[in-house]
Nucleic acid binder design. Sequence first.
DNA 1: AATTGCCTACCTACTAATAGGTAGATTCAA
DNA 2: TTGAATCTACCTATTAGTAGGTAGGCAATT
Lengths: 190, 190
Amino acid sequence: MEQTTSEKILDVAQTLVVAGGYNGFSYADISEAIGIRKASIHHHFPTKAQLVSVLLQRYAKQAEDGLNAVSANVSNPVDRLQAYFGHWQSCITQTSEPFCVCAMLASEIELLPEEVAAHVRRHFENLSRWLASTLTQGVKQGQFRLSVAAEEEAQILMASVHGAMLSARAFGRPEIFAAIVGPQLGRLSP
Amino acid sequence: MEQTTSEKILDVAQTLVVAGGYNGFSYADISEAIGIRKASIHHHFPTKAQLVSVLLQRYAKQAEDGLNAVSANVSNPVDRLQAYFGHWQSCITQTSEPFCVCAMLASEIELLPEEVAAHVRRHFENLSRWLASTLTQGVKQGQFRLSVAAEEEAQILMASVHGAMLSARAFGRPEIFAAIVGPQLGRLSP
DNA sequence: AATTGCCTACCTACTAATAGGTAGATTCAA
DNA sequence: TTGAATCTACCTATTAGTAGGTAGGCAATT
């Protein structure tokens, strides 16, 4: 088998969450998309909260691997940030994944099951930590000059990326993402 | 009567949308919050899409009035942006309205009823237009120096605000909003 | 080799609760 | 006494989740 049913379910669920958030999809939607019965989905993922939790665990692993790969393969901190931005830019322009699943869920975090909310918070922490450490390295190597602390600049960059995703979606114009995020890097050069 | 039932319904609905988006609330929630039956809400707003549409019309009016008031009463473009940022900063720190209702809805725009989605798009256009014109005036008066076009810088600022809202919510730390948005103004001075 | 038991995966058929929405009667104020 | 506002009482569709069963694979026992 190429892909297990569980993986298919998670893939579809992720697409649906990206499209409409936690309350924007149902087991029936997944069922229809992959052609199995609702009950079979419950066999793999007893509750919706568990399904989305597993989804976010998988996402966290992918994200961690992705960021680690960038850190390992790209020596220049400027290029590292570029790689991160570029990842999202291609996701969005190809409309393959036009929004970060955690950003999507963060907006409705107040009414998420606690176990799901915890995953979302952790993602925000991990991402801002990676950005901050990348910035710190760039400062050490003289490639960045920051006007605020690295942690704060990391928050600014992360917010830019999320806000850019939102605007691209709201205007229905993927190219807006690059227009917003692009100038951010220039700001940091000494 | 101090406040009409319609207004009460809209107020509660707005709070609920801000908390969890379009699919995150129901007529039953509103009914419970203000102590009337579901059917009575349908009397005022026959469908959910109409309810949210009226909500967004009202919101657009308030936003327009607010921005016009700033333009009228604050002559300095720097202070105008400051006033806009400050508005959201106090909304968020007082947790009275911790998120823009249109930003919330924009994230799930793909599955909104078309009439609702149209309102959301219009809000993004209006806000970015106001920001761009404020920036342009500031440039003319020599208070801003932009490294990109005013329209693009407006998009950057708007994205910062929305991303900052999201981070403040995700981390559960309202002060993050100011930490992200605060440094944006400094960037623009010549 | 055949049987037994267990497992995974999936099914049909159901539940209780909730969703948005409707019909028609009643209340109440102008 | 008309009309708006609210009510009770309902409807249909959908929600997440459950009950119970079937088909086939795998392995140990006979």
